[in-house]
Amino acid sequence: MKQVINLELNGERYEVAVAPHATLLEVMRRELGLVGAKKGCDTGGCGCCTVLVDDRAVYSCMTYAMTLEGKKITTIEGLARDGKLDPLQQAFIEAGAVQCGYCTCGMIMAAKAFLLNSRSPTEAQIRQAIAGNLCRCTGYRKIVEAIGLAAR
């Protein structure tokens, strides 16, 4: 049985009817037309679906939408402000950290959550912050470099 709930995504309120088992990822992609978070596995581990809930990175593929009322959700669509890219987005472009791009939005969101609490991270910390995100194209080096760039 679907139930209507209110979600706050990127500062906007959405009223959606969701099934008890619906995940945030499905609700965003199917109902809200927010396709930045990607499904890469649906069982946790690839990280393509990463978004922030109350400023913390989670896998949206395993976050039940029903549990999110009253929480602040941020997705890649909410990063750029007034057409200005977030420093992370800019750094990913500059450093050549984007290849096929399928992991990119999840990577940036994982990095975003990390940088909210970390001013001058070490390379090891950066790598730890994206340990839950797989990339098959880049070998991660330029991604790590981009996150370092954005931190500065």
Partner: peptide, 12 residues
């Protein structure tokens, strides 16, 4: 820069 990079970092 890759011509698709902007699109990919903003939601792909």
């Amino acid at each position: 820069r890759s011509p698709d990079a902007y699109d990919k970092v903003t939601g792909g």
